[in-house]
């Protein structure tokens, strides 16, 4: 099991302009392009890495953050193994919206057990001095919403970017070991009541 390479799909979600594409590019090409276009449609890049002896190919998906494009973005949530909820520490609104992104993801990715799904939260642009979201605030949100790992990143100077992706991989692998174990005993249906926290369309 440790010899084969597994393909993991991770998706970057968050408001427009928080730096999703910059983070992806930093991680995959180790470059920061200040002249990057805003994203239209959907893109993805692959990156091979080894985490704790596991060979992994990460397929990183990046979408456009604007509300208008939701219907063409959400189909790509399917099959994600991990979701990186991203905000920018110099943009309060992007932080407040984390909850909506999470709901949108759970709903459209059709996650079977939302409370167990591996989310990782990224507070990007820590290199900027005028912060609007404090580390404590962000950590509190992560704790209260499912004890998600939180990383303060900078795509610009590469702070914590690789670390965050590696943590994402670890979370997924930890999940997989559990489910691998579960498959033979699949006859035991886990009954789950529909949760009321479903996002609203408006």
């Amino acid at each position: 099991m440790t010899t084969k390479t597994s393909l993991l799909k991770v998706i970057l979600l968050g408001d427009g302009g928080v730096g999703k594409s910059s983070i992806m590019n930093r991680y995959v090409t180790n470059k920061f392009d200040a002249h990057l276009f805003h994203t239209i449609g959907v893109e993805f890049l692959n990156k091979d890495l080894e985490v704790d002896g596991h060979q992994v190919t990460l397929q990183i998906w990046d979408t456009a953050g604007q509300e208008r494009f939701r219907s063409l973005r959400t189909p790509f949530y399917r099959g994600s193994d991990c979701c990186l909820l991203t905000f920018s520490v110099d943009d309060n609104q992007s932080f407040f919206n984390l909850g909506n992104w999470k709901k949108e993801f759970i709903y459209y990715a059709d996650v079977k057990e939302p409370e167990k799904f591996p989310f990782v939260v990224l507070g990007n642009k820590v290199d900027v001095t005028e912060r609007q979201v404090s580390t404590e605030e962000a950590q509190r949100w992560c704790q209260e919403n499912g004890d998600y790992p939180y990383y303060e990143t900078s795509a610009k100077d590469a702070t914590n970017v690789a670390v965050a992706f590696e943590e994402a991989v670890r979370r997924v692998l930890a999940m997989d070991e559990r489910t691998d174990h579960l498959i033979p005993t699949d006859t035991v249906k886990l009954h789950r009541k529909p949760r009321s926290a479903v996002p609203c369309c408006s």
């Binding site: 063409l72 189909p75 399917r78």
Partner: peptide, 13 residues
């Protein structure tokens, strides 16, 4: 399933 499902959903869109 994922690509298939993505395609299905896009088909709805």
């Amino acid at each position: 399933r994922p690509p298939e499902e993505v395609a299905d959903l896009l088909g709805e869109v």
